[in-house]
Structures are given as structure tokens and as C-alpha cells.
């Protein structure tokens, strides 16, 4: 009897977007007089960081500094429609809507700047910090602020844009199941290292090593947040969580954070991850959704690592100490002559 270590692997894919009811989102963008840009949405930030991601996408398309972008969400009186934050769709859908809106706004911005600088708008480029410069002509430029002021007070132009992204609804063929249920697929492979106490069935996850392919990491720091937080949740689902500990018996359901078991700060493994990018053809800058999937691959990886460690094959989540111990007992009984 001892603590045994094992390693398990799992590889998964995850769909971006829900596409069985049509899946649109919209964005409106306008410049303020002083060349800041307000992006009006009705999308919801659950903590995944929508405002930051949308700021970066807006700044990239407009060619301005992220500091000049304000995300105004969510108010149904002012924000255009968004289906909502779910199905790993927000970066993809709202990001695409913003690209469309920002592209339109950028065109007006460059038109106005071209008139101010007396050059064709095609000859202009943005420097990403707040200036619009004439290509190949050092020193000939106008600030975004001055262009915005001119648009408002001189040219009578609205530097604004409207954007929508709609993945049309897919109607499944109920005979064959043929359908188009998603926009793209992200990928992950996780390796779990665990230690099993064979006397008690307790499992400790020592390390989770992952590789994620997510199309484009718009903000690698926030990708990391999803990976670490999602790995933790996956471990939690694998070993601890249930609202019905004796499912399908309804007894003993937890009602607080003591009984609804999740790993605490003392139970966390070491995390290690690398990111791969294979840009999707339809995501903003190729981005795919990563929000949901980071909790998925750790679960089977941990289950497989437990088997590797001690030979207990648990097919029933969560993998409680009791289930591990019952499996070890059954194996011991079977091994008896």
C-alpha cells in the first residue's frame, strides 16, 4: 500500500459558436470629437475579458492606441443586438462585428484625414498610436484627434461604423444528422500527472501540461488565464464536483461551498502550457473560442492518469476516493486465488 504516481493523456476539440438558431451579434462604433472611439455593444463580460479583447480588435482595425477605445456594454436601449455570452462565441462573433464596424469607421476617418492632408485616402496609414501618416512621406501626418475634430466641425461627417456577424441558422437533417453546427474548432492536448493513495483512494493532481490550438491568441495573457482557470475547473469536475453526490439518488445535495467540493488553493497542481495558432478562416484575425474548452481535456487526462497509477478505471464522474477504493478493492478481490 502506497502512494502511486501515474500519467494520462487526453486530446480534444471544441466548437466555436452555436449555430442551431442563427447566431448574430452586432457592434456600433463612433468617434468622439477628440478622436476617441466608443464601441457600443450589448454583449456581456462574465469575467472572460470581453472588454479588453474588443478593445484590442477595435484598436487594431482602426489603427489607434487601445487607450483611445471605450467599450460601452451592455444596455439594450443603446447597444445593438448580441445573442449573448455562451458557446465560446463572443470573441468570434462580436470580434467579427467589430471588424466590420471599425472598417467602416476607419474609411471615414481616412477620407477626412485625406481631405485635411490633401492626399488620397489610399495613401494614408495609421501608426497605431494616434497619428495618420502619408505613406512614404515622413512628417506629413495628422493626429486622429484633429481628424475627428475636422470631421465633426468642418466636414459634417460621422466617423462611425456598423457591424454585424451572422452565422446563418443550420437546420439539421433529422434523417441523417447532417448539419453545420459551428464555425471552427479549437484543439487541446493535456497530460495529467497524479498521485493516488491506494489505502484511501485519494487522488492528488501534481501537474497539468497542455498544448492549446486556438486560432489566434488575441491576448496571450488572457489566454493563459483561461487555460489555468479552466485546467483548475477541469480538475475540479474530474475529482470533486457534483450537485448530486449519489446520483441518481437525490439525497445529500450540497448547498454551500463546503459541501459543493472544489479544489482550494492547497489542492492545485503545477500548470504548464504552450499555445499553437492555426488561424481560422472565419474568426477575427483567425481567433477561435477558447472559453469553454479549457476545462475539458484535464478530466479524461486525470482519469487516465489514475488508471496508469493504480489500475483503477473509473468511468463515473466525479472520481471520488470512494470510487477509486472500490475499484482497487474489486481488483484485489479478483486477484485472490
Amino acid at each position: 500500500m502506497a502512494k502511486l504516481r501515474g500519467r494520462g493523456i487526453a486530446a480534444v476539440n471544441y466548437p466555436t459558436g452555436m449555430n442551431l438558431g442563427g447566431d448574430p451579434s452586432q457592434a456600433l462604433i463612433h468617434a468622439t470629437t477628440t478622436g476617441n472611439f466608443v464601441v457600443t455593444l450589448s454583449s456581456v463580460d462574465l469575467g472572460q475579458g470581453l472588454r479588453t479583447i474588443m478593445t484590442q480588435i477595435t484598436a487594431e482595425v482602426l489603427g489607434i492606441a487601445p487607450e483611445a477605445v471605450m467599450i460601452d456594454t451592455a444596455d439594450t436601449d443603446t447597444g445593438p443586438h448580441c445573442m449573448g455570452t455562451f458557446a465560446s462565441r463572443t470573441t468570434h462573433r462580436v470580434g467579427n462585428a467589430i471588424i466590420m464596424a471599425a472598417t467602416e469607421a476607419r474609411k471615414v476617418l481616412l477620407d477626412v484625414a485625406g481631405e485635411e492632408l490633401e492626399v488620397a485616402p489610399e495613401d494614408l496609414e495609421t501608426d497605431g498610436t494616434g497619428r495618420i501618416v502619408v505613406k512614404g512621406v515622413p512628417g506629413k501626418s495628422i493626429s486622429v484627434q484633429d481628424a475627428a475634430l475636422a470631421a465633426h466641425f468642418k466636414h459634417g461627417r460621422t466617423i462611425s461604423g456598423r457591424g454585424i456577424y451572422l452565422k446563418p441558422r443550420s437546420y439539421p437533417d433529422f434523417e441523417t444528422g447532417a448539419m453545420d453546427p459551428d464555425s471552427c474548432q479549437a484543439h487541446a492536448c493535456t497530460i495529467a500527472e497524479v498521485e493516488v493513495d491506494t489505502e484511501t483512494g485519494d487522488v492528488r493532481v501534481l501537474k497539468l501540461i497542455s498544448a492549446y490550438e486556438i486560432g489566434r491568441a488575441i491576448n496571450p495573457m488572457m489566454v493563459e488565464q483561461q487555460i489555468v482557470g479552466g485546467s483548475w475547473m477541469g480538475m475540479s469536475h474530474a475529482l470533486y464536483e457534483t450537485t448530486e453526490p449519489y446520483y441518481p439518488n437525490r439525497a445529500h445535495g450540497p448547498v454551500d461551498f463546503l459541501g459543493y467540493l472544489m479544489p482550494g488553493p492547497a489542492d492545485i497542481p503545477e500548470y504548464d502550457a504552450v499555445i499553437l495558432e492555426r488561424p481560422s478562416t472565419n474568426g477575427p484575425f483567425g481567433a477561435k473560442g477558447i472559453g469553454e474548452m479549457t476545462a475539458n481535456s484535464p478530466i479524461p487526462a486525470i482519469a487516465n492518469a489514475i488508471f496508469d497509477a493504480c489500475g483503477a478505471r473509473i468511468d463515473d464522474l466525479p472520481i471520488t476516493p470512494e470510487k477509486v477504493l472500490r475499484a482497487l478493492d474489486a481488483a484485489a478481490l479478483a486477484a485472490q486465488p
Partner: peptide
């Protein structure tokens, strides 16, 4: 996927602090 990843960006790919 080096070829597919190609592109030059200013705001995309930055570890911008959460706003």
C-alpha cells in the same frame, strides 16, 4: 503553422492588461 500565422499586428497578440 508559421505561414498561416503570418501577419503584422499592433494591438493583436499583445498581453494588454485587462482594462
Amino acid at each position: 503553422f508559421t505561414a498561416e500565422r503570418a501577419g503584422s499586428f499592433q494591438a493583436i497578440g499583445r498581453a494588454l492588461p485587462r482594462i
